[in-house]
Amino acid sequence: MQDPVALLLTDRADRSAGIAAALEPAMACHVLGMDEPWTGSAPLAGIIADVDIVRSRTRQTVRRLREAVEPGDAPLLVLMRSRSARSFADAKAMGADICLLPRTSPHVVAQTFLAQTSPRQDMIDLTVTRAVGRAGRALNTLLDAARANETLDTEAFEAGVHPILTAVAAGGLIRWLDLVWSFDDATYQHCLLVAGLTAALALHLGFSEADRQHLVSAALIHDIGKARIPLAILNKPGRLDENELRVMRSHAAVGYEILEQATGFDAATLDVVRHHHEMLDGSGYPDGLRGSEISDRVRLVTICDIYAALIERRPYREPMKPADALQVLRDMKGKLDGDLLAAFEQAVFKR
């Protein structure tokens, strides 16, 4: 059976690409111009009309489209050109389920549309599966380039970040974790876990879209230095000896050096990569920072990083139960930010 698609009817080509890209992590989007017929055979998830709805020709086009595709329960989202009573009335006359202003950001349009079209388990699972795939491919591309001392493709990497936020917002953290746990590669699994946990916490704290994107990007790449750690150490099932531990702990500084030599990574991202193992009491590494020397973004990712390490599934050991892992974090009083830890508990364990 074909996956459902979204139809985007538009008379503004400059807007269509952004909306289609924002929808892509969850579903394919077919863009239709005003004079184009719908000839697809895939199930219809819904229609987005980014058109001047007060024009009679536009209303006729919307009517014909809805009749041609027989949408049934598929919702209609209309991006109005004004706040006028007439625009609203015309949109409702067309059967609009949601009306938004045209300046609404593409990601908000996508999230609003998906909230109307994605209550079904299969659609939510599809959203999460695609997001994990895109984020994983972006991460693997970066890790492979780091191992081979090749140029890092920052644009491809950033394209894999937003789907994480979309998936966690649409499907919840548990679905994200369940799917990521199915992967065997330790670094791959860990980075995706930390990114998902960071996304959940950033959404819970109400961060702006730009701040969420930036923070999740740093979380996804925080362990890039492990690309240069020997596999015998990285994948050792038992406790590391003193020399091995020293090599393993070098990954934070190594990751910083990798990104510092690349282009497209700002100081805030470098901060997370280098300092995500620092502790407020100065007992962390590599620089022994303490207190106010550690930024809020680092403190946030550090909590997600430690929790992810505790709940990870490995062939050689059972994962720690979530409640037990949370207690470990609570027992690290003085090392972790208490306010952020309380917010983390609310974000991850909310009912």
Results as ranks from 00 to 15, higher is better:
R130S: 09
A186H: 04
R212G: 02
Q2R: 15
F113K: 13
H107D: 10
V62D: 00
D337L: 12
A138K: 01
I224G: 00
R317Q: 12
A91S: 06
G40Q: 11
T112K: 08
L7K: 05
F207C: 06
R212S: 06
H222S: 05
W38A: 07
D50N: 08
V168Q: 01
S118V: 04
D339N: 13
L340H: 05
K92C: 14
L201S: 02
M248C: 13
V51I: 03
L126K: 10
T302C: 04
L280S: 02
A253D: 06
L114F: 04
E155G: 02
F207Q: 08
P71W: 12
Q111L: 12
R290V: 05
K92D: 07
V180W: 00
A159G: 01
L340R: 12
L300R: 08
I124T: 11
A28G: 01
S295N: 09
T269H: 09
I124C: 02
D14L: 07
G95E: 02
M1H: 05
G334M: 11
D11P: 03
S87M: 03
I311G: 09
K226M: 06
A202Q: 03
H162W: 08
L152R: 04
I224R: 01
K333Q: 04
M332W: 13
A13T: 05
A232K: 07
A28L: 14
M27T: 11
V54W: 00
G334P: 13
N235V: 07
C29S: 04
T141C: 00
D281R: 09
T263I: 07
A253R: 11
E345T: 11
R299I: 10
S105P: 09
D296E: 13
D97H: 11
R63G: 02
V254K: 08
A268D: 15
L234F: 10
A268V: 08
V5L: 15
L326T: 06
I47A: 02
S217L: 06
E318C: 07
E155Q: 10
E70M: 14
R212Q: 10
H277A: 15
P106A: 14
L270D: 02
R12Y: 07
M123T: 13
H277C: 12
L143R: 15
E150H: 15
G33R: 10
M248K: 14
L220N: 14
A148H: 06
R81P: 00
L300G: 04
A6W: 05
V78Q: 06
L193T: 02
N149P: 00
A20V: 08
L240S: 05
V194S: 04
V31Q: 00
P319V: 11
C29M: 01
V62E: 01
R330H: 09
A22H: 02
H204Q: 15
A268E: 15
R55T: 06
V51N: 00
A262C: 05
G171F: 13
H214E: 12
L203F: 15
A91H: 01
I174C: 05
L143A: 06
L220C: 08
Q327W: 09
D241W: 14
T187L: 10
C99T: 12
A309R: 13
Q121M: 09
P71C: 15
A138G: 07
Y285D: 06
V161P: 00
R81F: 01
I174S: 07
R228I: 07
G225T: 10
M320Y: 11
N235L: 12
A148K: 11
L197H: 11
